[in-house]
Nucleic acid binder design. Sequence first.
RNA 1: GCCGGGAUGGCGGAAUGGUAGACGCGACGGACUCAAAAUCCGUUGGGCUUUUGCCCGUGGGGGUUCGAGUCCCCCUCCCGGUACCA
Length: 815
Amino acid sequence: MAAYDHDTIERKWQDRWEAERTFYVTERDDRPKFYNVQMYPYPSGDLHMGHIRNYTYTDLLTRYRTMRGYNVLAPMGWDSFGLPAENAAIETGIHPRVFTEERIATMKAQLRRLGAVYDWSRELAAHAPEYYRWTQWLFLRFFEKGLAYKKNAPVNWCPSCQTVLANEQVVGEGVCERCSTPVEKRDLDQWFLKITDYAQRLLDDLEDLKGKWPERVRVMQENWIGRSEGAEFTMEIAERPGTTFTVYTTRPDTIFGMTFAVFAPEHPLVTELVAGTEYEEATRRFIDEVTRRTEIDRLSAEKEKEGLFIGVQAVNPATGEPVPIFIADYVLMTYGTGAIMAVPGQDQRDWEFAEKHGLKIIRTVQPPDDFEGQAYVGEGPAINSGFLDGLGVEDAVERTIEWLEAEGIGRRAVQYRLRDWLISRQRYWGCPIPVVHCPDHGVVPVPEDQLPVLLPDIEDYQPKGQSPLAAVPSFVETTCPECGGPAERETDTMDTFVDSSWYYMRYADAQNDEAPFGADPARYWLPIDQYIGGIEHAVLHLMYARFFTKVLHDLGMLEIVEPFSRLFTQGMLTKDGAKMSKSKGNVVAPDDFYARYGADASRLYHLFIGPPTDDAVWSDEGVEGTSRFLNRVWRLATGDHADPVDREPGDADTDILRVAHRTLKKVTEDIERFHFNTAVAALMEFGNALRAYATSEDGPEPGTLAGALDLMILMLGSMAPHVAHELWERTGHDTMLATEAWPEWDPDLVTVETVTMIIQVNGKVRDRIDVDADIDEDEAASLALASERVREYTGGGEPERVVVRAPKLVNVVVR
RNA sequence: GCCGGGAUGGCGGAAUGGUAGACGCGACGGACUCAAAAUCCGUUGGGCUUUUGCCCGUGGGGGUUCGAGUCCCCCUCCCGGUACCA
């Protein structure tokens, strides 16, 4: 039996969906809205099966939600600024714009070939001036609010990409997220967005996403924000009364055990304290050495704690005793105050440092008798701690904070691990930062009516440690908007994560040339009801986008405070033990599979391959199964079965309708909870039953067969849309399947009448009896006890106990 | 180290505390065919057994329960995140 002509059918329906604009929507619509978005892709060129997996999920939801009666917006766009296009340009000499736009065209054709449907009237691309004009406009709003600022700071520098990176883009053991080159530290003037102002709100609002976002993404963001609670207090330098410094601690209760203090080598007070002393030279050498080391070295936990006494002491405010001050590389200038009180009794790092430098160790929390470790961080009564003695840790913390406040030297304090978002990039292919530097007026924003600041076409993209734009006089040389005098444009471009922080807002009103988006379309479509993308963006894109949403809310542009109501992170598609990617050389091209099995069979296999949240291993043979299934459905629906027999419907006919409706219930529930693999399995079971029914000797009853086939086709409509649409048409329907209502199951057909009751003896299955579904407990028990098989095991004796779970199971317990 | 998530046939995977292995791949046997492909039918966790059947089996060890892949405790290994964060 030949396979159906998938190629012709698929092209036919792809043309119709586009020609009839089946999935184009407006906000003038009575149906409830459903905003369905896939994280917009970087236009890398050819789609491989790893991408196809993700688009299949999104497309299924677009079609399913439409059938469920929603006004579904499914847009598509391109994350088209960024390093890869620029790197390709350097290699090939093709301008990044040309390179990128060619690839967008290719990918668009491939999405169409998959049968993925979008409202293409809302297509956008980050590199298009009509888009980045508004990225720049938004930057200016941040600037006005004081949320964008330029400062000189030690920043992460990727020597290979020749640009700075945000903290979030330094991954693993301190390497670049893009190219895995170890990152260095450099002091540079850079633009930051003040995401730290929103740390608490970003943390608080995660609560509302419980159950709607994957737990692990929520936890990763919580950890990244890294809130910790404790106290801050000041200490005096013993040798210089009046000179003070501040420390932050989460364990103020251990203050009596502070036997030394440690400064980060970069702490500004250090050079001042050693100036003109015998320690000056050694201190300078130590700082040099530390700062020369790479971040990786410095952060390596295995390394011994290097430190140096700098010749001064601080006064422990609790004891009044002087304690020596050290500088050490394990204290970071970027966290807390850059100085700590060291309590070796309760902190393992301090313990190790104390041992190495022969410093005093005083326990201030009594460890249990059997404690054999060094620093003790657990619960216990305070000891050696004056007025705190005997208190538990929590109470002691509170008492200490009260005392610090009463003394006027400290207060309760909260710290976050989150740092401001560094958005400057010293690269060409990105959105220009719309400011000019005037010798008289400093940083001056470009006036709105001069936006966009266009990215000029250039020949030489080679990264040189500063933006290639700096070498373009026609770009750099400008006039100051304030005074009209000569000024220079900012030449850094923005991190591409700025572009992607608001694109999903633009989709709501993509043609607007007076604002990033209008208030009404935004109010209608946002937030995104279902967002789908990769786990790799757990703390990058997903946190930046949340930050942008909150800022735009505060600017009065949005009503929402969270952009993504529900998030789904799909697993990776792997082959040969690695994520499918061009660079690994393990990509599977969809075209071969489209040619042999069709897009529908490929899609169905992606749905069937395993749980969507899990990584999945691609196997070429797997598509055989879904292809066979679709061909069987095709043959049944096109008349390849036993001759139908006109008759009053009987048991066999009712039975197949029962299977059909039970399948409908399961498939509906499975799609709702994203269990696509079991939904496909249920359809296959239904297919097997339907085939047995349609080819049985008695023959199918025509109405029953048609009804069952309709349900099969409707259910396949979102999974294997082309073949389903074609069969819908061929089985005599004059509507388009895409806009049909999702069917409802008949409750009477879904409830079971008879079930197979399991009979166990001591928990082991010994017999099965078909019983009425509404059998009562007594009857179930007596049926079970009457069973021949059960009596073989009980020997006719009285059972010790009979557990009845009618109608599913009876367990006869004998001893 | 800390925080998540895992471990089920040859393979991908099913399984509200109640028939472990649905569904599919692969393999084996058969039908059709001159033959092959395609298609269709059957078998397919391991062991024992002529059969009805019986025993064992969800990473390892304990426990709770009439009953545990599922719940609890301990351990091993794998994957992801994070890590001198005071």
